[in-house]
Amino acid sequence: MSAPYTDPVARIASIFGSIPRPRRFGRVNWVGLFGLMRREAIRELRWFGMALVGPAIQAALFATVFSLAAGEQGMAVDGWNFLEFLGAGLVISAVMQRALETTGYSIMFDKLESGGLQDILGAPLTPMEILTAYLATAIAVSVSIGLFIWLVMSLFGLGLPAHPLAAVYFLCIAGGIFSMLGLIGAVFSKKWDSFSGKETFVVLPLIFLSGTFFPLSAVPEGPWRTVFQVNPIYYLVDGFRWSATGRLETDPWLSAAVTAGLFLIVYSIAARLLATGYKLKP
């Protein structure tokens, strides 16, 4: 006797018309990579209005309040227009905060609320591809928010960048560093409030006390100034401010080197965490 489909492969083929095969891809799963980027971008776009408007209003208020409080004589910092100085700081601090939240909140939500993290970890994506997708989306989102705030700050006197290419570099590296920090923070946080705890008690002081709002010369000499100079975020802010306004406090090459080094460190940590599946995979 001969049943028509004894062979299981032939039976499946009879159902589907042809035999389904696992999708093949080369060294990089571009479809998966872009799929994950697209998902992250769509998630971000849902809140984009508020994510754009909130920081912009905040930045405009900061600029207004500072200029009202400083008055005429306070409008100069070491011979530089204070609002220009402040504007650059507000742009870069918004980029840093947004990049942290884009990646961090996304992973926290997937981990705690939707269970979507398993879908990402289960997909045929290497840790590098996952990391690249998060990184690229966070940079795109945070830099576009930074540019919007730049637009708002131009009403207060922040001009076009003095060194456009350097500005692009510092904006992107800020987004990169903080999106990786967001990923690391999210991996180590069991609950929402432990993530926002890290944000409030570690990252926010780091951002606020890194020369975003005042020059290094305002800090009294001694141990406090040393603390500032050790803070790598200071180099990020100062490098960006140089590229945006031309105001030089530290050598921009040093700033570029420090920020690149910091990015490599946080990137490797994030890559290691994803590769080993620390606290993510059972």
Partner: peptide, 14 residues
Amino acid sequence: LFLAIFSLALGHAV
């Protein structure tokens, strides 16, 4: 943090 920022940023002027 706000206190620190505003005191440092405006301390020279106000």
